[in-house]
Amino acid sequence: MTDIGEAFAAAFSLVYHLDRDLGEIVLLSLQVSVGAVAVASVIGLPLGAAVALFRFPGRGAIVVVLNALMGLPPVVVGLVVYLVLSRAGPLGVLGLLFTPTAMVIAQVFLVTPIIAALARQVIEDMWSEYEEQLRSLGATPRRALGALLWDGRVSLLTAVLAGFGRAIAEVGAVMIVGGNIDHVTRVMTTAIALEVSKGDLALALGLGIVLVALSIAVSAAVALLRGTLAQAQAR
């Protein structure tokens, strides 16, 4: 398989020459996925915590659905978001189709269930330890939720990272709602898909290697952040 050797050569060449297009694509990939994860965290963390804390009818069903939605097929999400954002769809007037915003929206749907489901598990485990103490101190449900989210920050970061992994690696949804337009909505995964469709497997794999390196870099940054967070107790 000479392709694999060529792939590494292509990857090094791309990085070594600081290819401007590559830089643009990497930056957009990060913007879209980080943006989606940020929005998904704002929705998913409190949602997961609320499901963990509150007892209400249908809660069991919600837990099952949340867990199941972790496996949402990206192409299906992309298709649904396309139909909604299409000019012929209900939100077509916003003109968001084929923009990075549309890609963020699609990824939010993919990432939120992951963050919410993992956060629910983390918070539920903590709640069994914290419940009586927080109630004794007079915490309202809202304050209890805030305290648990903050105290669980290190574990919750793993949930957020899992969401990021999903976002940065998926191609089906961003391809459909972004359109893979050069210099506008082309990200790492759609660029890889394009090179595969062109038949340039070496370049596709080279881009893949860059993507994996990027994921490792993000994961390392999160590890550093985790250290900072652990120390945040000291403040």
Binding site: W150, R153, L225, L229, A232, Q233, R235
Partner: peptide, 11 residues
Amino acid sequence: VSGRRGPLARL
């Protein structure tokens, strides 16, 4: 007592 606005928020 300013623990809430830690390095996380800043980062």
